[in-house]
């Protein structure tokens, strides 16, 4: 059976918020090392991958691997009903058809139990090859969110160019054009590692959706390589991450 307790429901709320705009149904695979989830959006343009190692949990027990087919909209409704500082325990039997969520208030005076029906999802798992990225940029997650929002006013396509001098985001549309450049800073809040310069185009709508994960981490890592999907990674409390992959736009 599975029993996993998070000290604060807030973390689960942030995770669900970071997933539900991209995917509506997904399988959460639980094993003794933690929880994993991987799903593509319906148009196969982006993929989200979530990993929560046991260190994310106050208590974690999983005797036998269990896969939980989740409707994220339903899960979102359940977590919304809890207060952020409640603790939450997820439990499921070995061959479960439902997930149990038990919320407990700080002073233990209020408990709320929900049973969520699980779905039988037949999802493809994709093998993501290890990639040696040409450019790796780290910046405050709020800065990335701001840039993605500002770019989307100008065009549905965002061009990202990265050189040793910095990373540049450009959008060109009916309104005119927008260019935002960031250079590495001495205090280390922006770091730019470049093996070879790169320029790629991406759909800004997806980049914007990825920034739903901003509350999970102060920092975001962006990795680019030629002919390879963009990787945008938010770490989760030292013991997990949410990674988004986005297929680049290609010359027609």
């Amino acid at each position: 059976m599975l029993e996993a307790r998070l000290g604060e429901t807030q973390l689960l709320k942030k995770i669900v918020d970071a997933l539900k705009e991209i995917i509506s149904l997904s399988t959460l695979d639980c094993s003794e090392t933690g929880m994993q989830l991987q799903s593509m959006d319906n148009s196969h343009v982006s993929l989200v991958s979530l990993s929560l190692q046991t260190g994310c949990f106050e208590k974690y027990r999983c005797d036998r691997n269990v896969s939980l087919g989740l409707d994220l909209k339903s899960l979102s409704k359940v977590v919304k009903s809890a207060s952020g500082d409640d603790s939450v325990t997820l439990s499921a039997a070995d061959k479960a058809d439902k997930l149990l969520l038990s919320f407990e208030s700080d002073n233990k005076s209020r408990t709320a139990d929900y049973e969520l029906k699980l779905l039988n999802l037949d999802q493809d798992h994709l093998g993501i090859p290890d990639t040696n990225y040409a450019c790796t940029v780290q910046m405050p997650s709020s800065e990335f969110a701001r840039i993605c929002r500002d770019m989307s006013m100008f065009s549905e396509t965002v061009v990202i160019s990265c050189t040793k001098q910095g990373i540049k985001f450009s959008a060109n549309g009916d309104l005119g054009s927008a260019n935002i450049k960031l250079a590495e800073t001495s205090k280390g809040d922006i770091t730019i590692d470049v093996e070879e310069p790169i320029t790629q185009s991406f759909a800004g709508r997806y980049l914007n959706t990825f920034t739903r994960a901003t509350p999970l981490s102060d920092r975001v890592k962006i990795c680019l390589a030629p002919e390879v999907p963009l990787l945008v990674e938010y770490s989760i409390e030292d013991y997990g991450y949410i990674r988004y992959y986005l297929a680049p736009k290609v010359d027609d």
Partner: peptide, 14 residues
């Protein structure tokens, strides 16, 4: 002109 790429051409099914 550019068109949106598809992830299935980058990643392989397990």
């Amino acid at each position: 002109k550019s068109k949106q790429g598809n992830l299935m051409s980058f990643f392989t099914k397990k």
